[in-house]
Amino acid sequence: MASRATTMSNAKPTAEAATVAARRPAARTRSRSARPPVAAPRPRTASGRDTPAATAAALADGGDKVLGTPSRNVDGKAIAITVFSTVKWPGRFFLPVVFFVGTHVPTPISRTLSKLSFIHFARWTLVREMPDNGQPSETLQYPHLYFESNFNGGWAEYIDAFSHILAGGMKFFWSTSYGFPQPLPTGPFKVYIERNETDASHFYSAYPQATTTMILSGLELEKKLKSFDEKSVGLGDEEFAAQWRDFLTDVQELV
């Protein structure tokens, strides 16, 4: 039974895509020359959506890139993701509107993002031009969308959640980026993010062992503890014990 395997992007299928054994890509080299190289695309195999061969190649290249989280993108439990994508012409006008709405209107996007309780901070912005510092002048052919997130949990789980839960809202951020596949299925979306991701050289968290849920729990717990403390002053031992019991019952999901 022939598998309905196809190439993953909109590019015309090439001879490369037809081979089963993936060709090793030109490494995204750390350039020694003045002119930066074009980041080589990951090979596309005919055998499926994800590219284990690409990951294997990346393993050989970059040493510790397993499951998309090289150690330099990690500090304790915090993970950094930095993604650039090239934006189509309409995005120049569309994205600022999306940003404005996201910022000023409590839309499903911002509400859902806050429910993805493993994100500490995230930001999106459009880069239209490079400020002049006397460097060889840059003329951007396109604007570029910058996305950054600081989050907990596995990279793959993160993208999974993004794919599924934000299948509606996420489109608005990336729908005007070249090559953006649909958020579902998650496979091509993960590959898209991984292709467009740049690894950090350094990532720092002031509280690396803390997850977002711990922080949110901690914030609420503090308020409740303060209130308990005030209420319990001057209580007899038995009453105090009863109040303490009630307090624990109230905060049990925060500890």
Partner: peptide, 25 residues
């Protein structure tokens, strides 16, 4: 809270772009 330093060698170009975009630094 968080800080990162990232070196961007060049723009990420997608094969579906009509033309490529490159940085000179």
């Amino acid at each position: 809270h968080f800080a990162r330093l990232v070196i961007l060698p060049d723009w990420v170009n997608d094969p579906s772009q009509p033309k490529e975009d490159h940085l000179h630094s």
